[in-house]
Write a protein that binds this DNA or RNA. Structure first.
Lengths: 337, 337
DNA sequence: AGACTTCAGCGAAACGATTAGCTATCGGGG
DNA sequence: CCCCGATAGCTAATCGTTTCGCTGAAGTCT
């Protein structure tokens, strides 16, 4: 691997000149520039980022730590993020905390050690699990989930509104016994969506039955067993709001395995799914999130911070969900019940 | 950010001793060690990888460049790779070449500049597009696709066998007019799978009609339009072998939009899909690839190379596909035709 | 006691870039 | 003719580690 010294020697100039040519940081006469450029090409010189970064104390690395790489929702974020990061001239270091706070803690420390210029984090822990020092000195944007009392920029969806929209739709169809399957309650997303559901019902003087509100991990299997349990009971709901796309798949599988038909026997609405794209039948009625826009925005905020073009202490951007009507819901009258 | 010097000063020792404590690289008396450890904790010292790597000329970074991050096949690879890389003590830098050779070239150069210790590459170009120098000096493993005449380790699936298995199954069901929709022919995967199909038919004295063999980009949209075209003609095949999971979704959508039913009107078999997991109906009959195993193996080979525990010049590992029977194929007799 | 080995720990030279500050050259104005 | 300013390019310090080779103290052997 050729170094800047080799190039300098070959071109008969100093390393400072080579550096100037590489970075366009000072005027270099056309003649010398040409010699340097030739030497660079001949030696196939590529500057070492390790050295450059040590000097500049920057790394050109942006870390992305997502909560669950097996979830298409996050792989979509990864896809968008890779493109955005590259477009801003950085490279993406990817981490999967697998919804485990301990793993996340190790990742945070690793990100620090790597000297990443900034990070986009989908936090998995409850607010009180974070030490303040875990964020300071590092440009950070929280994506998708927020942490109360945090000091970092945040890009989220209006979860409460998402829950409200979905459940309002079910209510409009005449459903009254509506259940919900959501994720862990310490997460802002789960809590927000459930609150939205409760809002929507309260607005019509209703409240969900306690046994019809269940939470579990944001995984297909967890949702499957919770759904089997809830749907097996005689006073089962006529409609379910599932707070997450992957869980919705589990719920649909549970419904099918119980011999129930969707939407004839049970209506299902969900939030944040990307499953519709996969050819799922029936197509889910769901609130969709502008994942790509959210991710791009998160990176814009982050790069702003990194390059110190920003004055405000903390910025919070909230996107709005949109209800997409599929084929997984029916008016109550049409029900077998 | 505290540096090793701060720690040394605080503990009243030299930087060399701090380094020894950090790396367990030399014996340090319990007393000094304790002082150092305390100082490290108090200052919340984390060594700078930039400096360490400059010195050691290693980066603890492994690059993964996949062909298409929007394809679940590759996101599955990303998932497995992140876990494996972390388990080996490295971090993952992710790139998406988006099936574009130009983008891939830029990525290769970036990987070099970053000083990654090694890379796992899903190559997108034809063999002759690679310069030998693009690989040398860098530990490399090719994953999923191979490059003829390459000098890197390779982990692939037996594509020919995959095509043979799927088409054999269709032949066993009595199909004779079998079509195929595959990816770009310069890719080893597309070519291998088509060859396997031709093998299977030739073994029974048959050959596909020329108009029934089509190729296009490995994308849902490409497959959709090719399928509409092929299925619209009067002598359309009674079964199709689709060489890729994402394309299979496009084909199924095309079939549905043409008012045809699968499997009653047309049987579909595919290779390499991960769509079955997504709740697709009917479930595809397909050859599955042990993606996680392949990825783990690729990383094992790579780390072997990086840590120079290996003598052989080039290793090639070929995995075998397995036929998974779903509900997307029927015997020919049952057809409307 | 003297000579030799261990051994903990230190000092300083790398690693490969950037960059502040300096030097030499040249042209032009007083 | 001298001085000055501008300009091109160089020298050397620096970033934060690791690591080679050294020192001096303590232990071991004759």
């Amino acid at each position: 691997m050729a170094t800047i010294k080799d190039v300098a020697r070959r071109a008969g100039v100093s390393t400072a000149t080579v550096s100037a040519v590489m970075n366009d940081s000072a005027f270099v006469s056309p003649e010398l520039r040409a010699r340097v450029v030739t030497a660079i090409r001949e030696l196939r010189y590529e500057p070492s980022l390790a050295a450059r970064n040590l000097r500049r104390s920057r790394s050109q690395l942006i870390a992305l730590a997502v909560a669950d790489l097996s979830n298409p929702f996050y792989t979509r974020i990864v896809w968008s993020a890779e493109a955005a990061v590259a477009a801003w001239g950085y490279s993406l270091v990817l981490f999967n905390s697998d919804e485990k706070p301990d793993t996340e803690r190790r990742i945070l420390s690793r990100i620090r050690t790597l000297g990443c210029d900034g990070m986009v984090l989908v936090p998995v822990g409850a607010a009180n699990q974070y030490q303040p020092h875990e964020f300071d000195g590092m440009a950070t944007v929280l994506l998708g989930r927020s942490i109360e009392g945090n000091t970092a920029d945040t890009v989220t969806i209006d979860n409460r509104e998402a829950g409200r929209q979905a459940v309002d739709y079910l209510l409009d169809l005449g459903h009254r016994r509506i259940g919900s399957i959501t994720g862990p309650m310490q997460l802002s997303t789960s809590k927000g969506r459930l609150d939205g559901m409760i809002d929507a019902m309260a607005a019509r003087g209703l409240a969900p039955q306690p046994g019809h509100i269940r939470s579990g991990e944001f995984r297909e299997e967890a949702a499957y067993s919770v759904a089997r349990d809830m749907m097996g009971s005689p006073d089962r709901p006529t409609a379910i709001y599932v707070a997450n796309g992957v869980m919705a798949i589990g719920v649909m599988r549970a419904v099918a395995d119980l011999g129930l038909r969707c939407p004839q026997d049970i209506s299902i609405a969900s939030t944040d799914t990307v499953a519709g794209a996969g050819g799922l039948k029936p197509r889910l009625t769901r609130t969709e999130h502008p994942i790509a826009d959210m991710t791009n925005e998160a990176l814009r905020l982050l790069v702003d911070r990194i390059e110190e073009r920003v004055s405000e202490p903390v910025r919070s951007i909230v996107f709005q969900p949109a209800l997409i009507v599929g084929e997984s819901c029916m008016p109550l009258r049409g029900n077998a019940a």
